[in-house]
Simulated scan of single mutants.
Amino acid sequence: MSVVLTERAAEEVKRIIDQQKLEEGAFLRVGVTGGGCSGFSYSLGFDNEYDEKADSKVDLHGVQVVVDKKSALYLDGTTVDFYDGIEKRGFTFENPNAVKSCGCGSSFQA
C-alpha cells in the first residue's frame, strides 16, 4: 500500500465515522486530484464504492483505507497524520515524492 495512516489519524477517522454515523462498511479514500497552487491536491473522504481493478485497500489501525491506482503513483510512501495544535487542526501529508509543496500543505508538485 502506498499510504500509511498514523494511529493518531486513524483515531480521528474513527471519531468522524462515529460522529457522522456513516454507513457500515464506509472507508477512507485517499487520493490526488489535479489543481491546487502547486499542481496536485490531496483528497480525503469517505466512500462505500470499491473497484478491485482500480483500487487497493488495506486496514490501518482499524480503518479501511482505499487508494486508487493512479493516485498511488503520487502517494507512494506518504504518511497521513492528524495534527491538533493551538494554531491549526487537521490532517497532514508527508509525501516523499513531492518536489515542491504550497504553504498550506494541501497541494504539491511531483
Rank of each mutant, 00 (worst) to 15 (best):
M1L: 07
M1A: 13
S2I: 01
S2Y: 02
V3L: 15
V4P: 00
V4S: 11
L5Q: 03
L5A: 11
T6M: 09
E7N: 07
R8Y: 09
A10M: 10
A10Q: 04
E11C: 02
E11S: 13
E12T: 07
V13K: 01
K14L: 14
I16C: 02
Q20V: 14
Q20L: 15
K21M: 09
L22E: 02
E23I: 01
E24G: 11
E24P: 07
G25R: 04
A26P: 03
A26W: 01
A26R: 03
F27T: 00
L28C: 06
L28I: 07
L28G: 03
L28W: 01
R29Q: 12
R29T: 05
V32C: 06
G34D: 15
S38R: 07
S38G: 06
S38I: 00
S38F: 03
G39P: 03
F40T: 00
F40E: 01
S41H: 02
S41P: 00
Y42T: 03
L44E: 12
L44T: 10
G45T: 13
G45N: 12
F46Y: 13
D47T: 05
N48A: 04
E49L: 09
E49N: 14
E49M: 10
Y50M: 03
D51E: 08
E52Y: 10
E52S: 07
K53Q: 13
K53E: 12
A54M: 12
A54S: 05
A54K: 12
A54L: 12
D55F: 01
S56R: 06
S56I: 10
S56W: 02
V58P: 01
D59F: 06
D59V: 15
D59Y: 05
L60M: 15
L60A: 15
G62M: 11
G62W: 11
G62H: 09
V63G: 08
Q64M: 13
Q64T: 14
V65T: 04
V65K: 02
V67W: 00
K69P: 02
K70G: 02
K70L: 14
S71Q: 00
S71A: 12
S71F: 01
A72N: 00
L73Y: 00
Y74T: 02
L75W: 04
L75P: 03
D76K: 14
G77T: 07
G77F: 03
G77E: 01
T78L: 08
T79G: 02
T79I: 15
V80L: 12
D81V: 11
F82Q: 00
F82L: 06
Y83E: 14
Y83D: 07
D84H: 06
D84M: 05
D84Q: 14
D84L: 03
G85Q: 09
G85L: 10
G85A: 14
G85H: 10
G85E: 09
E87C: 07
K88T: 13
K88I: 06
K88E: 08
R89Y: 04
R89S: 12
F91S: 09
F91K: 14
F91T: 08
T92G: 10
F93S: 10
F93A: 05
E94Q: 11
N95A: 08
A98Q: 08
V99N: 13
K100E: 14
K100V: 07
S101A: 08
S101N: 11
C102T: 04
G103L: 15
C104S: 07
C104F: 14
G105F: 03
S106F: 15
S106D: 12
S106A: 11
S107D: 05
S107W: 09
F108W: 06
Q109A: 09
Q109M: 13
A110G: 11
